[in-house]
Structures are given as C-alpha cells and as structure tokens.
C-alpha cells in the first residue's frame, strides 16, 4: 500500500485518497440528483430536459443491446458510465486525482462487472442452466471460458487504470517542463479520453452482461427448437 495516499484510518481500515475522492463524487452526485429530481414536472425545464436526456440515452443504449432489459440494467450500467466519467474528469481539477487512476478502484469496478455478468445470467435462467454454457459446445471449452472471463476482467481493470494514470502522468510531466498555457491541449485530451474510457468501460460491461444473458436465451431457443422438431 502506498502510504502517501492514506488520508486517515478508521480502526484497521486505511482510508486512501481514491476512496475519499469517491465519497466526494458520491456526495456531489447524490446531492445534485436529489436537488434536481426534487420537483420534476411533466413540462420539463432545460435542466430537467438534460437530465431526462442523459437517463433516456443510457436507457435506450441498453435497450438497443438488450431489449426489455433497459430498466433492469439501467442502475448498474448507468452508474458505471456516470461514475467513471466524473471520476475520470476529477483528475482535470487542480490538486485532485482521479479515483480511476488507482488500480484498486478499477479492479473493484471490474470485479463488480464480472460478478454482475453471472448475477444477471443466473437470474435469467437459473444457476444450472447458466453454468452449463461453460461446457458448451464441449466440456473441453471450460478452461478457455474461465480464462476468457478472468482475462477480460483483468483487461477491464488494467485498461481503465492504465489510460487514466498515463494521462495524469503525462499532464504532470507537461506541467513540469512546459510553460503556463501549454498543458491546455493535454487537459482537453484528458477530457475527451476520460469520456471515451467511461464509454468503453460501460459499453464492455453491457456487452459482457448481454453475452451472459443472450447465451442462455440462445441455448433455450435451441432446446425449444429441438423439442418441437
């Protein structure tokens, strides 16, 4: 553990900077959402329209990938997109660092995605039916499936961590060696990259979850087709 990043301790728990930053992000998001959604109207104003646009876009994106799963997956996927985007953008602020520039945070998010794939898959068809797809089309495929699950989860965590950390490092280096306004393009790139990485992470999570659900659905349809023939 990097002792410099520990802010304070609660008993045996060492509270690091990414955790504190995450709390700050959570607090800000919660307050903003609580205030924004306190008096929603059927005839929306500009801010409510923007809010509905964000939620509606996320919902439609999920629905396009997984029809009828929009409402069910919206909290998880939507929170991934919103949290990672804001967490990435926090690094632009002077004196702050992105929580996603810490491997522990990105690993936590990747583990959550890994678990959610199985959670939604099992909720769809049950444990037995879900786990049986690991031995499809042959039990020989089981190690490959497992390796695939682990590698893509690791890739999720490392990709986000590597991109954000490298951006922050590059920005710091440019700030150290260049003049006053020189890092501005780097910061603009940081903003774009932050949004792109958030989109990639959320989209990959959605694709993995949809893969877990649709593999069950396709298997079920194959079984039904075989039974009817």
């Amino acid at each position: 553990m990097d002792t410099e990043s520990i802010i304070f301790t609660i008993g045996p728990l060492a509270i690091t900077r990414p955790v504190v930053t995450t709390w700050a992000v959570m607090l800000g998001l919660t307050l903003l959402c609580a205030i924004a959604t306190r008096r929603l109207k059927l005839d929306p104003g500009p801010f409510q329209t923007m809010l509905e646009g964000i939620v509606g876009t996320i919902h439609d994106a999920i629905d396009d990938t997984l029809p009828d799963y929009g409402v069910r997956l919206l909290p998880f996927i939507g929170t991934l997109w919103i949290f990672i985007a804001i967490a990435n953008l926090v690094g632009v602020l002077p004196g702050a660092s992105s929580p996603t520039g810490d491997l522990s945070t990105t690993a936590a998010l990747a583990i959550l995605v890994f678990l959610s794939v199985h959670w939604f898959g099992i909720r769809g068809e049950g444990v037995r039916a879900y786990l049986s797809h690991y031995v499809q089309p042959s039990p020989i495929m089981l190690p490959f499936h497992i390796i695939s699950e682990i590698s893509r989860t690791v890739a999720l965590a490392v990709r986000l961590f590597g991109n954000v950390m490298s951006l922050e490092t590059a920005a710091i280096l440019v700030l150290l060696v260049a003049g006053f306004l020189v890092p501005v393009p780097v910061l603009a790139l940081h903003i774009v990259e932050a949004l792109v990485q958030a989109y990639i992470f959320g989209m990959l999570a959605l694709v993995y979850i949809s893969g877990g659900i649709q593999s069950q659905q396709s298997r079920s349809s194959r079984i039904k087709a075989g039974a009817s023939s």
Partner: peptide
C-alpha cells in the same frame, strides 16, 4: 499496487452509489 482495503471500500462505495 492493489490495496485490498481500497478495493473493498470501492466495491461498497459503488454499490451504495
């Protein structure tokens, strides 16, 4: 470096969020 405390807290944080 993977900090397990941060890892677990971030899982909890995200679920709370």
């Amino acid at each position: 470096q993977l900090d397990w405390t941060t890892f677990l807290l971030q899982i909890v944080n995200f679920l709370v969020l």
